[in-house]
Simulated scan of single mutants.
Amino acid sequence: MTISALTRSSRSIVKSVLSREQAEGVGARVRRSIGRPELRNHDPFLMLDEFNVDKNGGFPDHPHRGFETVTYMLEGQFQHEDFAGHKGTIGPGDLQWMTAGRGIVHSEMPVKSQTRAHGLQLWINLPKEHKMCEPQYQELLDKEIPRATPQEGVSIKVIAGESHGIKSKVYTRTPTMYLDFKMDKNKTVEQSIPASYTGFIYMLKGTAYIGDKEFEGKAHHTLTFSEDGAETIKIQTKDEDAHFVVIAGEPLKEPIVQHGPFVMNTKEEIQKTFLDYQFGMNGFERARDWHSTIA
């Protein structure tokens, strides 16, 4: 890394929020990051959960409309199945990027032979023109996700977007970067971020020091970036390793009306969504008589 690169001003951290465990679904515990009252609708992101699900728990039949869910596994295996017959299993390091669009009903359940399933689920809002698109899945195994290694002891999985010249193959309707960092102790790295993006770090393990003022981030804290137009974020480790994700995206700057698993732009659209789901119309036709075989 050049000296000039290290002298660029870094974005700073404007808020740090601890995610405490709460019950969710059936037999699941989540640490909610984005989506807490302190971090409501961090445009374009709606929610980030770090989930732990025991083998008898899960998230049985539930609908979505108007956004995307991104499931990234850290430990264990998750099965998924939807009303269109799409099904599969993702394991440690694997990714499922699901565009719910006009309508999906699905189940997400741990593989019963596993002790637990542990991972992250991110909800990304869709722009108005894509809210009623056809549902789509993008799935990548751990080995298919490219890595950047800007220096020894720093590994970056490029789930979406780009890092140090390595680009993801994931197509994002809402421009998004999603990077999984593992850093040994006593390392410093800079990550480029488009000036217009909002973003945050979610700490999974260890301690990292962010920005020129070396704001300290610890496990299970969400650290939101300043929106000052700076195009880099500087991250350091000192006396311990760190594992965290960097997530950033282009704000949509559109009205958000959310009711549980439905996210639209107006109250009228939400009301219509409830009618569509209730009567099996406009994308929910297959929901009427469907029940998951894995739930």
Rank of each mutant, 00 (worst) to 15 (best):
T176S: 11
E231D: 15
E108G: 08
N56L: 03
H86P: 00
S12Q: 13
Y209L: 03
P135N: 12
I34K: 02
A242I: 01
E227G: 13
F181W: 02
S155Q: 11
K213A: 13
L275F: 04
Q96I: 09
I156T: 10
Q136C: 07
S12K: 12
R8T: 03
D228H: 10
H80K: 03
G27I: 06
L126A: 10
Q114I: 01
P175E: 06
S292L: 09
M177H: 07
D276N: 14
A84S: 14
L252G: 13
K185E: 00
Y197E: 02
T222N: 06
E250K: 15
G58P: 03
G165N: 10
E50P: 03
K112I: 07
T115W: 00
H80N: 11
H62Q: 05
E227S: 15
K253Q: 13
S163K: 07
K218L: 00
G217C: 13
A230H: 14
H62V: 01
E152W: 00
T293I: 08
I235H: 03
E254R: 03
K267C: 05
A230Q: 14
S107Q: 09
I3K: 14
P251Y: 09
L48A: 12
T2Y: 00
E38P: 01
G103A: 08
Q79W: 00
V30G: 09
M47K: 04
L140S: 14
Q77Y: 12
T273W: 01
E285Y: 01
K167E: 11
A287K: 03
